[in-house]
């Protein structure tokens, strides 16, 4: 190996070390974070990704299914109502995630169609489905109860759930529809408001 190459290798190694040092490994997930569940989601864009990627931003999440005629539109209305109750700055700091309990029918195309119909724009709004075998586990960590009916509909509890940036459930409400639960909205506002910076001025 020539001297030049050796120097290059050293420089590269140093750069690599600096890069590693500059991006410290993320802090371990809290033990009660829903992102402890190893889960892959397939979004409305057809991409599949680990749901722990949602970490880092507070999220309002709900379970639903796209073909639902009665309750699920109200769930979306409820989440919309929360979004409207935030200032523009707060809206930038919260994500909204609709998770399907019906992955067989909620293909990316079906999710995309619903997103377009309800004008749920990415990246603030994400629609995604887990693998069929994981729906019960996802519902379990979110505390949602559901049963598939013989006609393809679902009987399910309807809730909006607020996750903090680390995936801990910090608030939930069964009040869906246009009338927003004031306590829940207050919790989302708090989550979407950065803590005042301390230190020297």
């Amino acid at each position: 190996m020539s001297v030049a190459l050796r120097v290059l290798a050293l420089v590269l190694a140093a750069a690599w070390g600096a890069a590693v040092a500059a991006t410290p490994a993320p802090a371990p997930l809290p033990a009660d974070s829903v992102y402890q569940l190893p889960l892959q989601l397939t979004g409305q864009d057809g991409r599949t990704w680990p749901w722990a990627r949602l970490r880092g931003t507070p999220r309002v999440v709900a379970m639903f299914y796209a073909s639902c005629q009665y309750m699920c539109p109200l769930i979306i209305d409820g989440a919309r109502g929360v979004e409207r109750g935030l200032t523009p700055a707060q809206q930038q700091r919260v994500g909204f995630v609709l998770l399907s309990m019906d992955p067989r029918r909620d293909t990316p195309a079906a999710l995309q169609a619903l997103a377009a119909k309800r004008r749920l724009a990415a990246p603030r709004w994400l629609l995604a489905a887990p693998a069929q075998a994981d729906v019960r586990k996802l519902a379990g960590v979110l505390g949602i109860r559901y049963r598939a009916l013989a006609d393809g509909e679902f009987n399910h509890t309807s809730e909006l759930i607020l996750l903090d940036a680390d995936g801990r459930i910090v608030a939930r409400t069964e009040q869906v529809g246009a009338r927003v639960d004031p306590a829940f909205l207050a919790a989302v506002r708090r989550a979407a408001t950065p803590a005042p910076k301390r230190g020297t001025r």
């Binding site: 109200l74 109860r145 559901y146 049963r147 009987n155 399910h156 509890t157 069964e174 009040q175």
Partner: peptide
């Protein structure tokens, strides 16, 4: 978690009326 007859499922106004879909 498909058994939807828990203690919370009492009729106590709007929120509970809509607890279970369909």
């Amino acid at each position: 978690s498909a058994l939807l007859v828990d203690a919370d499922n009492r009729k106590q106004g709007d929120a509970d009326d809509t607890r279970f879909c369909g």
